[in-house]
Computed example of a mutant assay.
Amino acid sequence: MANHFVLLLSALSVLSALANGSIFTPAINAKKVSHVSHAVMQGTNPNDVKGLAALQSQFSLLQSWTGDPCLGLITWLWIQCTSDPTTPRVTSLDLGSYGLVGSLPDFSSMDALQTIDFSYNLLNGPVPDFLGTLPNLQELNLANNDFQGKLPASILKNNNLTIVVSGNTNLCASDNSCQTTNTNNKPNSTPQTPSYSSTSNNGSSSKLPAILGASISIFLVFWVIVGIVAILHHKRKSAAVAILGAGSINGTPQGAAMNAQMTDHKGEAVANEQVMMDQQGHENENRNAC
């Protein structure tokens, strides 16, 4: 097989030289051909290539990276590889804030991964179970996405794994920490109300009767005070009217008219008395004349 490959390369070299107008055939020995054959066999581990292909197929934003992931001329900025010059492995996926939208595909073949960062994207759906089974994974950052449901048991029970899932409002880290429930995964479940909201409502309800009682008491006291002030004002007004009435009788035109009327009555009495005295005087004169 190696001999056939050497002959094929030799033939191609000759044809290339003839096409370029050269009359000299290139000197190719077995050592050089063997070196070329070895270089062709170099490249990123096929398991990693398979997983990266799944990610590129799911997220079109990643398809602009081409060539060999670890040894190609174009550097793939979102991965890190080992320094193996022949068959390097991908050890890190750095896809935080890449604008990825959708669910995660299956890239479980990338079993050399040590760090995975999918934070600050728009990823949704359940967290894949295989993430907890990657043998070398140490850090998993899924923060600030829209993952739903519960974290797989393979992740929760992995004591060698550090995981960050904050910012996923529909994701339950455990049975005790579930605040909301994914209705797509569990149709019969009912979203749970956060405990702080329930406590706040109960506190407001318990304080309502006390607030109403205090308001009614203040209202009644206010109107009692208003009534007392009104009564005192009325009494003072009545006393003032009485005083003004007495003063009017003695010193006002009404009082003068009454005094005049009393004077007239006295005058009439005096006049009547004078008439009676005159009559007695006439009677006495008549008697003396007789």
Rank of each mutant, 00 (worst) to 15 (best):
V6P: 03
L15I: 12
S16N: 15
F24T: 15
V36N: 04
H38P: 07
G51W: 00
L52P: 07
S60R: 09
S60I: 04
W78R: 09
S83H: 14
T86C: 03
P88F: 07
R89A: 02
V90S: 03
L95V: 05
M110N: 02
A112W: 00
L113C: 04
N121R: 05
L123F: 10
G125V: 09
V127R: 09
L140N: 01
N141F: 03
N144K: 11
S154N: 15
I155L: 11
N159C: 13
L171Y: 13
C172G: 11
A173F: 11
C178M: 09
Q179K: 14
N185H: 13
K186C: 11
S189F: 01
Q192M: 15
P194S: 08
S205Y: 00
S206H: 08
K207L: 11
K207F: 10
A210K: 03
I211A: 07
L212T: 08
I216T: 10
I216R: 12
L220M: 13
F222V: 00
V224Q: 14
V224G: 10
G227H: 10
I228A: 14
A239K: 13
A242R: 14
S248Y: 02
A256R: 12
N259V: 14
M262Q: 15
D264S: 15
N272T: 15
E273Q: 11
Q274W: 10
Q274P: 03
Q274G: 07
D278V: 04
E283C: 06
N284M: 12
E285K: 12
R287G: 07
